[in-house]
C-alpha cells in the first residue's frame, strides 16, 4: 500500500541532499525495519513520509494505495492512516494528553466521514490503553510531554499510536534511550497491533527492538540510499559486524 519511488529529499531552503533515491514497497501486514548508521538519512526518511516541512522532496514520489501524498500536509497524511512515532516528541505546555488525543481522533474520524467518539467511549479506550502501556497516571494529568522522561515520551507515543489505530505506522528510533521495561512495553504494543491490514516501518540504529519485534524485511540505509535488503537475518548480521563494511564500501565507491 505504501510505495516509495526514487525518493530524493533535501533540507528545505538548502542544497543539502539527504535522501538520494530510495525505492521501497510496503505491503499490508508487513513489518519493515530500516537500519543504518548515524547520519544515513533514516530519520529523515521517516519524517519525509509524514510530511515534515523542514524537508523538501526534490525528486521521486510517495504513494499510498496509488495516490501521491507528496503534496499533502501532515494532517492530511494522518487522515489517510499514516502515523509517525517521533524520536523527540515536542513538549506542548498547557495541553493535556487526553485533550490532544481526543482532538486528533476526532479530526481523523471526521476526515473519514465517521462519527466522533463520545467522551465516555473515548475515555474508556484511553484509560485501557494507558493501563496496558503502563503509563504513570500522574503524567497524563500534566502537559503533553512536559517534564516526561525519554521513556515516558516514547510510551506516550505508543499510547497515541494505539488509540489512533493507523494503517501505516512509522516509528523513528522509538527504541533509543529506553530501559528494558519500556522497550518491552513498546514491543508488546507493536506486536499486539500487528495485523494483516497494518504495516510498520521501524527506523532503528540498533537491533535491540528487533529482538522483540520480528521484521519481515530489513533494509540497510547508508548515505541516503538503501544498500542492502534482506530478511530478519540481515539485522543480526548488522548487529555482529556493525556498519563498518557498508561505510567502507561507500568511501571506496566515491
Amino acid at each position: 500500500m505504501l510505495k516509495i519511488e526514487n525518493l530524493h529529499a533535501t533540507v528545505t531552503d538548502s542544497d543539502e541532499v539527504i535522501l538520494k533515491g530510495i525505492d521501497l514497497e510496503v505491503s499490508p501486514g508487513e513489518v519493515h525495519a530500516i537500519m543504518g548508521p548515524n547520519g544515513s538519512g533514516k530519520s529523515t526518511l521517516a519524517n519525509v513520509l509524514m510530511g515534515k516541512p523542514s524537508y523538501t522532496v526534490s525528486e521521486g514520489d510517495i504513494t499510498v494505495d496509488g495516490e501521491s501524498i507528496v503534496e499533502m500536509m501532515p494532517d492530511e497524511r494522518a487522515h489517510l492512516g499514516l502515523f509517525l512515532a517521533m524520536q523527540y516528541p515536542s513538549e506542548v505546555p498547557g495541553v493535556r494528553p487526553w485533550q490532544f488525543l481526543k482532538a486528533a481522533k476526532d479530526a481523523i474520524d471526521d476526515a473519514n466521514g465517521q462519527k466522533k467518539t463520545s467522551v465516555r467511549q473515548f475515555s474508556k479506550l484511553f484509560d485501557e490503553k494507558v493501563e496496558e502501556i503502563g503509563i504513570n497516571l500522574d503524567l497524563i494529568k500534566r502537559s503533553l510531554n512536559e517534564g516526561f522522561s525519554g521513556g515516558e515520551k516514547k510510551r506516550n507515543e505508543m499510547l497515541q499510536m494505539q488509540v489512533l489505530d493507523p494503517r501505516i505506522a512509522i516509528m523513528d528510533e522509538t527504541d533509543s534511550g529506553l530501559d528494558i521495561d519500556a522497550l518491552q512495553a513498546v514491543a508488546d504494543g507493536v506486536n499486539k497491533m500487528r495485523s494483516p491490514e497494518r504495516s510498520f516501518v521501524i527506523v532503528t540504529h540498533y537491533q535491540r527492538l528487533l529482538h522483540f519485534v520480528h521484521p519481515d524485511i530489513v533494509h540497510v540505509l547508508v548515505d541516503g540510499k538503501i544498500v542492502e535488503t534482506g530478511d530478519a537475518s540481515l539485522a543480526e548480521k548488522v548487529e555482529q559486524n556493525g556498519y563498518r563494511d557498508y561505510l567502507a564500501a561507500q568511501r571506496n565507491g566515491k
Binding site: 509524514m50 494532517d75 494522518a78 516528541p89 515536542s90 513538549e91 479530526a107
Partner: peptide
C-alpha cells in the same frame, strides 16, 4: 514548527 508538525502529524489541522 516542531510543535505544529507534531500536532498536525496526528491529524489536527494547522
Amino acid at each position: 514548527d516542531e510543535q505544529l508538525f507534531y500536532l498536525m502529524s496526528r491529524g489536527i489541522s494547522e
